[in-house]
Design a protein around this nucleic acid. Structure first.
Length: 487
RNA sequence: GGUCCUGUGGCCGAGUGGUUAGGCUCAGCUCUGCAAAAGCUGCUACUCCAGUUCGAACCUGGACGGGACCUCCA
């Protein structure tokens, strides 16, 4: 099998993936800030990394997948307002900040489960790692690359840039970065325009605060990921991921913090996923154009014509490459939903396929194509195109137009299990098993009755059965070997 | 303003120098008692202009359009 190539933001090229210590792989992904419901755009990122996680597992790697929960330290705009997003929301809802955190963390997990995303190996929280963050800030101060002012600690970007390349992830020079930044106002405590807070001093009314060498306060946003990734994955690890919106600020700062501490590049492969857009504009919390997964599943949203099943939505997302923007629309969703159903239907057909002694298809070639697509920077668009080839092959064989040997069928089943279920994380929508088995028996009976009506040329009755079943949501599919049905 | 990405058929969306992407839609055909399902075929796609090349959607230059980041965001 060929090697896996991944696009590395650091080099802006596809690079062959080589683990530091195979078969182990350390992967860190920036998780959600749990002060409100995750929207669909957030989900896309986590589904993309779920795909990478699943594929690495499929290839036999032992992956430690760390995805944090940000439950402290995110300020909303100007930091002078004192409270972070959690405390603000808590005041609004008149609850404890940790009630906010708990509520939206549970909600996030529910949604991820619906999308059939595997849970990460470790899901650390910022509030659970205050000590580690304080220790790391102390190290940066000891290196002379951070300074304290009135209980707040800042990272000194310009001083850091004398020794290290601050703009490496975004391919920009310090001067360019400075040009694009706002002037410091007279009241600013920061030395330099690009400096960012590592620790923020708390005001008396601040709800979430911890003691530190610099007084009561709370951590800045960027330090948590550096501290937690280092704790669980080491000074240098394999893969760090997140949305593209984090690249320029959050990830650039993460690299700076780690480099400042231990003078080593913290990550070998930086992977960034692209945004989900609505009518061409990025879906975001602040823009207010976000869909909640729940609204999508129920169809309860002015822009939605109907509800969509979670895995149909997952399939919709996987049809686009993770580094392309994906535009959200009813039409596109409905197209994906139909394709997804056809794919799942062919899996059922595959289970009932009769083997022939000869073969008219090259299934091994098809399997190779699937690996090739995935190895090319997880090209799921191409992978899915190949999978639709299998649909055609299966349906043709089912119609007795082509032949498959039993080893062909076995290999096809393996392709489905490997790529559709294990790697893409799709699966047929599960109903109630007991109900299904009863329905199966009832349907067998009904189809038998209809077949009898047809043999006696009582087409009025057979059509009535068909039409009434359709009205009830069951579609009859007549074939040479009798009739089948689907919901 | 700066940095960068992008412009593909009715819709979504791969491809990045010569060979079918794929899905959905629509039309025709095959199968069928009819329909559906399934299969086949078609709707002759690459924003525009100039250049490089035997050959360009793909490379280069320019124009126009869309978007992202530079401030919290997956």
């Amino acid at each position: 099998m060929q090697a896996l190539f991944l696009y590395n933001t650091l080099s802006r090229k596809k690079e062959e993936f080589k683990a530091i210590n195979p078969p182990f792989v350390g992967m860190y992904v920036c998780g959600p800030t749990v002060y409100s419901d995750v929207h669909l755009g957030n989900c896309r990122t986590f589904i993309s990394f779920d795909l990478l996680y699943r594929y690495l597992l499929h290839l036999g790697y032992k992956v430690r997948y760390v995805r944090n929960i940000t439950d402290a330290g995110h300020l909303e705009g100007d930091r002078d307002e004192g409270d972070d997003k959690f405390a603000k929301k808590a005041k609004l809802e008149q609850v404890e900040p940790m009630e906010i955190v708990q509520k939206y963390t549970l909600g996030f997990h529910d949604v991820m489960r619906e999308f059939n995303a595997l849970p990460p190996s470790i899901e650390p929280t910022a509030t659970g790692h205050i000590c580690e963050q304080i220790e790391m800030i102390k190290e940066i101060i000891n290196q002379g690359l951070a300074y304290e002012k009135n209980g707040t600690v800042y990272f000194d970007v310009e001083k850091y840039s004398k020794e290290f390349n601050y703009g490496q992830l975004t391919n920009r020079k310090l001067e360019e970065l400075l040009e694009g930044t706002r002037e410091l106002s007279g009241q600013d405590e920061k030395h330099g325009r690009l400096d960012f807070a590592l620790w923020i001093s708390a005001k008396p009314e601040t709800l979430m605060r911890w003691p530190s060498p610099w007084g009561w306060g709370f951590p800045g946003w960027h330090i948590e990921c550096s501290a937690m990734s280092r704790k669980y994955l080491g000074d240098t690890f394999d893969i760090h991921g997140g949305g593209m919106d984090l690249q320029a600020t959050h990830h650039a700062n993460e690299i700076a913090q780690s480099q400042a501490c231990y003078h080593k590049t913290p990550v070998n492969y930086w992977i960034h996923t692209n945004m989900l857009t609505v009518n061409g504009t990025r879906m975001s919390k602040s823009a207010g154009n976000g869909f909640l997964p729940e609204e999508l599943f129920t169809g309860n949203h002015p822009l939605l014509e109907k509800g969509y099943k979670p895995l149909a939505v997952r399939f919709f997302m996987l049809q686009t490459h993770y580094r392309s923007t994906l535009d959200f629309s009813n039409e596109a969703l409905q197209a994906s939903e139909k394709g997804f159903e056809r794919l799942m239907e062919s899996y059922k057909t595959l289970q009932t396929l009769q083997a022939s002694s000869s073969s008219s298809e090259n299934i091994a070639e098809l399997q190779k194509n699937c690996y090739q697509a995935m190895n090319d920077d997880l090209n799921t668009s191409v992978l899915i195109a190949h999978l639709f080839d299998t649909v055609r092959i299966i349906n043709s064989a089912n119609d007795k137009k082509t032949q498959l040997t039993s080893s062909d069928i076995t290999l096809l089943k393996k392709i489905y299990d490997d790529f559709i279920f294990d790697v893409l994380g799709l699966k047929p929508e599960k109903g109630n098993e007991k109900l299904d088995s009863v329905l199966e028996k009832v349907m067998r009976m009904v189809l038998e009755m209809r077949a009898n009506a047809k043999t006696t040329k009582n087409f009025q009755l057979s059509d009535e059965i068909r039409d009434k079943l359709l009205a009830a949501g069951i579609q009859i599919k007549d074939g040479k070997e009798g009739s089948a049905w689907k919901i």
